[in-house]
Amino acid sequence: MHDFNYQNIDDVIHSRIRTAIMALLVSVEEAEFTYIRDKINATDGNLSVHLKKLEEHKYISVEKKFVERKPMSLYKITSEGRKAFEEYIRMLENIIKR
């Protein structure tokens, strides 16, 4: 039997859309805003809000640049974000094992 405390759930990751963003970013080196949007089927506004939240908690970082005069935002998972995501997975596994 594994102990489970709901207070241990990482609220920053624990949302369908943010979990998807983290799962996507943990598997690649970096991804552009529109790529993430298309992959997780989100709207621009909705995705921006969730990305901002992850960024505020330093789980992801962003690099903004211009390519052929078009703005491009590239998102990357940080080592803090990777650690938090691994912890989140471990928590999910513990819930299943209970």
């Binding site: 998807a20 799962a23 819930i95």
Partner: peptide, 22 residues
């Protein structure tokens, strides 16, 4: 969160990660 929800969540994460690697 119950174990069924956790299983579903893990399954989604696994799918995204596997697909991203491909």
């Amino acid at each position: 969160m119950d174990s069924r929800q956790a299983e579903q969540e893990l399954a989604v994460i696994k799918t995204i990660m596997e697909d991203s690697r491909k």
